[in-house]
Simulated scan of single mutants.
Amino acid sequence: MNALICGSMAFDTIMVFQDRFRHHILPEKVHMLSVSFLVPEMRREFGGTAGNIAYNLKLLGGEPLIMATVGDDFAPYQIRLESMGIPQTHIRHIPGNFTAQAFITTDLDDNQITAFHPGAMSEAHRNHVADAKSVDIGIIAPDGRDGMVNHAREFKAAGIPFIFDPGQGLPLFNGDELLQFIELADYMAVNDYEAQLLQERTGLSLDALATRVKALVVTRGADGSEIYADGRIINIPSVVPTAVVDPTGCGDAYRAGLIYGIEQHWAWEKTGRLASLLGSLKIACRGPQNHTFDRDSLAAAYQAAFNESLW
């Protein structure tokens, strides 16, 4: 089954601050903030919401189709996608632009400070859902603002069920605009912070928002996640990782699990557990796309975590 993944392709420059931000940011001085963090550890990773989701979905045996816009510096990422067998049919090159770039500083509490340059991502609206054929499900992850708006309408017009995953793009939209997205979407996924912001902007509780989609998923990090579906709240436990190394991309790994479970017509309990496991596997590795697994190792990890068979 083909999953159309609308979102960003980006290079992530990830830096690790060997201390805690709270030791260096004075609450009474935030109005005149000027701080510098020494980051002796730095690396450049392949990232972006669409790239990360596609990576995990491909490992699961899915067929991801990426719809994104990229810049003149995309060649290394292109080679990587080719090596993985991920089609680039709907990745559009925008001359004279950089591919989106995220500069992420993580502290010892896994807090993150990110600076993001959108580059070619701002032209996401130049891609159209109708250009992708034989699509069974889609997701709208953080992308160019106009692209997110257009792709939601296009998914609905094409009759393709999709997940609305506003992520870091949520602050770009007011309450009415967010409600429009939700009316068009079949599913929605947010983290706990985004869930709070969503409620504030729309004026609706999570229970009320959940009645407007088939499922509303709220991830809460180490506290697991909740799936509002079928008039109930399904609590999904977190999976204790082998190590807590880097949270970057954990949400995208989780969303790949959601897509796969929906494609397989699994119950929400099983879908959520797979998604939770993928987040745990990701956090144990540096970078959003350096963890790996195969069908057998994933099944073994799922059995160990939940005492039930995956396949």
Rank of each mutant, 00 (worst) to 15 (best):
I5Y: 03
G7W: 02
S8N: 09
A10K: 01
F11Y: 15
I14E: 03
M15R: 13
M15H: 08
L26I: 12
P27T: 05
K29V: 03
M32S: 13
L33H: 02
F37K: 09
V39C: 15
G48T: 11
I53K: 07
L60K: 08
G61W: 07
A68E: 08
V70G: 07
V70C: 03
G71C: 07
L81I: 03
E82I: 02
P87F: 04
Q88T: 15
T89K: 13
P95Q: 12
Q101L: 14
F103P: 00
I104K: 01
L108P: 00
D110W: 00
I113K: 05
G119T: 12
R126T: 12
V129I: 15
V129L: 10
A132V: 04
A132T: 07
S134M: 05
V135G: 10
I137Y: 14
H151D: 06
R153W: 04
F155N: 10
A157T: 12
I160S: 08
F164G: 00
Q168C: 04
L170D: 04
L172P: 00
L178H: 09
L178I: 11
L178S: 06
Q180L: 08
E183R: 14
A185D: 03
V190P: 05
L197M: 14
Q199Y: 01
E200F: 01
R201W: 03
L209I: 14
T211W: 01
R212S: 06
V213A: 08
V213F: 08
K214N: 14
L216M: 10
L216K: 07
V218C: 05
V218Q: 08
G221V: 09
A222E: 14
D223H: 14
G231A: 10
S238P: 03
T248A: 04
G249D: 03
C250S: 13
C250E: 06
A253Y: 02
R255S: 07
A256D: 02
I259T: 01
I262L: 15
G272T: 06
R273F: 02
L274M: 11
A275P: 07
G279L: 08
S280L: 06
K282Q: 15
G287E: 04
G287T: 08
F293L: 02
D294W: 05
S297C: 06
S297T: 15
A299F: 03
A301S: 14
N307I: 06
E308Q: 15
